[in-house]
Simulated scan of single mutants.
Amino acid sequence: MDIAAIRKEYSLKSLDISNIALSPLIQFKAWFQEALTASTLETNAMTISTINHENKPSARVVLLKGIDHGFLFFTNYQSNKGQELALHPYAALTFFWPELERQVRIEGYVEKVTDEESDDYFYSRPLASQIGAWTSPQSHVIPDRIFLKERQEKIEAKFKEVKITRPEHWGGYRVVPLSVEFWQGRPSRLHDRLKYELDETGNWSINRLAP
């Protein structure tokens, strides 16, 4: 298998400063809608990179669940990512839509969303997912799947007669961007890269980066 020979030429679109929004959030929403329209696979999937207790990078894929002045996702606060964000409240996000030959990189600080926002999303989920939030001690070592099955059955029995509540250890985070880079694949690996950076006055500057 010759992995080094795997390559694809990018030529679908281009990206120019004169044709983008002044706000990276507005530009992201436009690209996100294009990705939805193009039926990209798992459009809202994003890699989130954090820093662990050894000051080493740690990454995994999660799902974007909202956009306001930041990018929202939900998880177990006691998971590895939750503990890492408590220690270092900064993260990097990466979206990749190969069907459009596009990538978006976001860096920013992280804050918990309000309890009300976490409740709203929790109760919008299917009941099985609500049960799952109670069932899984996310990122912790477990003996086998039987452990999860038995734990799930106990949770289902507990909430059979009463309304399920959101676990205190489960909720949302917001990644508030400090920089956002939009990447559009181009021929000969001379890709378009436009980067927004937030300055001390709260305004966004936009610069073209070499590919």
Rank of each mutant, 00 (worst) to 15 (best):
P167F: 03
A133V: 07
A133M: 07
P177E: 12
H140D: 15
D119F: 03
I164E: 00
P177G: 08
D120S: 14
S124I: 08
S179Y: 05
Q130N: 09
K149L: 10
R166S: 07
E200W: 00
W183M: 05
H191V: 08
Y121D: 04
F159D: 01
V141F: 13
V175S: 08
L190Q: 08
S179P: 00
V175T: 10
A128W: 07
L190W: 01
Q184F: 05
R208W: 06
S136P: 02
A133Q: 06
F147H: 14
S179F: 03
Y121K: 07
F159V: 04
S118H: 04
L194C: 09
L127Y: 15
R186E: 12
P187L: 09
E150T: 10
I155F: 10
R174H: 01
S139N: 08
E197M: 13
G172Y: 03
L178C: 01
I206D: 00
Q130W: 02
P177V: 12
F159I: 00
K195I: 14
S205Q: 15
P187T: 09
D199P: 00
R208L: 02
L127F: 14
E161F: 12
L209V: 04
E181L: 01
S124W: 00
G185D: 01
V176M: 08
D144Q: 04
D120V: 11
R166K: 15
T135G: 01
G172L: 06
F159G: 00
L198S: 03
W134D: 05
